[in-house]
Every structure is written in structure tokens, then in C-alpha cells.
Amino acid sequence: MRRFGLVGRPLVHSASARYFAAKFEREGIAGCRYDLFPLREIGELRRLTDEIPDLCGFNVTIPYKRRILPLLEALSPEAERIGAVNCVRCDGGRLIGYNTDVEGLRASLDELLADDRPEEALVLGTGGASQAVQYVLAERELPFALVSRDPLRGNFTYDNLPGEEVARCRLIVQATPVGTFPRADEAPRLPYDALTPRHRLFDLVYNPPLTRFLELGRQRGARTMNGERMFVRQAEASWRIWNG
């Protein structure tokens, strides 16, 4: 049996196990299973890999995309530049980190923006997912500002983010877990009245499909996209990595 899975905490929102179970059945892939591995802290990872010697690879989600780095033997060049990992390949006892979030982000932004090019972007959050977002925006030479709960890590906090900044940044990327099931009634604290039909809102959350953040954007006429396309693309990229 070839084993795969997802490590993080909490995992109640995740569709990964269902996605891979459906993939295995649809594509006739035998002898494989994908499980959820909620770890109380990332130090439990080595115990997990010792207990499951047939673990071939796993995905990584909040809050461990950066905390896992010291436990890995190697990083792909892209993961090293990003500074965050969401995919790990187990190679003869060595753990090798990759970042497949960027593939999903590129595809999602291509669809959301099409031929539109916002002058500036606003990225909500400064965690591991945000680092992948920043990497992809930098690839496109699209200037961005960061909003963080920590005043030392962002250009703005949620308490001092001016409406003028929101109005100017026509692309807003929500890269935090706020609004994820089961707390689907929550949304980042923004001056939503500054949004217009020219705005593009991208939420990395895919459960629920319509987050409160996206709903508030739609009420102002903004074009929106959730994280489902990104989720599928990063999952398929992970599968390719695990299978060499």
C-alpha cells in the first residue's frame, strides 16, 4: 500500500482526502490511500513518518507551511525562494519539500484577471500561503502591499488599513484561514465600501465556496474567485511530484 496524506491543524475543512479518494477511483489507481494527519505540533512529524514507513508523500497546510522547513532534508529551488512548503516527497527516508501552491495561484490569477492588469494588489495575511502569493505577484511584476495582524510584518494592520488603499488596489488576495468552515460567517475586517465593480477578489479558501469575504465583494459588484481551482491544481502537481 502506498500512503499519502495531509498534515496540519485543524483539518476539518479539508477536501483533500475526498479529492484523492475520488481520483483513485476515477483513474483506476489501486493500492493507494490518502489520509488526514492532524498534528498538535510539527515536532510530531518524525514520529508519523516512523510509524508509517510506506508514506510516499504528503501535503502541508496551516499552520506548518513554514514551521516544517527545519525538518526537511532538501527543498526544491522554488520552495527555497518562497520560504514555504505545501508538498513533501518521502525519498528513501529523506523528506524533500516543494511548493505546488504557486501552480494553482498562477492558473487562478490567469482566469480571474484575464486581460485586466491591476495597478496594485493587496495581500491579506503574511503566513506560508501569503508567501506563495507574494512570489507569484512578484513574477508578474505587480506591486503589492501586505495586511497583517502583526504591525511588524505588514504594510498595514486591519485596524489602520485606509479605504483609499483598498480603493487603489483593485486586486485583493485573501491568504488567511478567516472564513473557513466551520467559521464561515467571518470575514477579514476591511472597509468593504471602498470596493467597486473594477475590483477583483481572490480567496484561497474553498470551503465554503462562497466565503463572507467574497460575498461582501459581490455586493459591491467586484469579480470574485474562490480557492477551488488552486486546490485542484496544487493537488495534481503534488501527485506528479510524488510519482517522480
Score class of each variant (00 low, 15 high):
Arg2Thr: 07
Arg3Met: 08
Gly5His: 00
Arg9His: 15
Pro10Glu: 08
Leu11Trp: 01
Ala15Phe: 12
Ser16Lys: 02
Ala17Val: 13
Arg18Tyr: 07
Arg18Asp: 14
Tyr19Phe: 15
Ala21Asn: 10
Glu27Pro: 01
Gly31Ala: 15
Cys32Val: 13
Cys32His: 15
Arg33Cys: 06
Tyr34Pro: 00
Asp35Trp: 09
Asp35Gly: 14
Phe37Asp: 01
Leu39Met: 11
Ile42Gln: 00
Gly43Glu: 08
Leu45Phe: 06
Asp50Gln: 14
Ile52Lys: 00
Asp54Phe: 04
Asp54Trp: 03
Phe58Trp: 12
Ile62Thr: 15
Lys65Asp: 03
Arg66Trp: 03
Glu78Trp: 05
Ala79Gly: 12
Ala79Asn: 05
Cys90Pro: 00
Gly97Trp: 00
Gly97Lys: 02
Thr100Glu: 03
Thr100Arg: 00
Leu105Ala: 05
Leu109Cys: 07
Glu111Phe: 10
Glu111Pro: 00
Asp115Lys: 14
Pro118Cys: 15
Glu119Tyr: 03
Glu119Cys: 10
Ala121Met: 09
Val123Gly: 01
Gly127His: 08
Ser130Arg: 02
Gln131Leu: 14
Gln134Glu: 15
Tyr135Glu: 07
Glu139Asp: 12
Glu141Ile: 06
Phe144Asp: 02
Leu146Asn: 07
Val147Ser: 02
Asp150Thr: 13
Pro151Lys: 11
Leu152His: 15
Gly154Ser: 12
Asn155Cys: 11
Tyr158Met: 06
Leu161Met: 08
Leu161Gln: 04
Ala167Gln: 12
Cys169Trp: 02
Arg170Thr: 13
Thr176Val: 13
Pro177Cys: 09
Val178Met: 10
Gly179Trp: 02
Thr180Gly: 06
Ala184His: 13
Ala194Pro: 03
Thr196His: 10
His199Cys: 12
His199Tyr: 09
Arg200Leu: 04
Leu201Ala: 11
Phe202Gly: 01
Leu204Arg: 02
Tyr206Asp: 07
Pro208Arg: 03
Glu215Pro: 00
Arg218Gly: 11
Arg220Trp: 06
Ala222Val: 09
Arg223Ser: 10
Glu228Tyr: 13
Phe231Ile: 08
Val232Phe: 06
Ala237Glu: 07
Ser238Ala: 15
Trp239Arg: 01
Ile241Phe: 07
Trp242Asn: 00
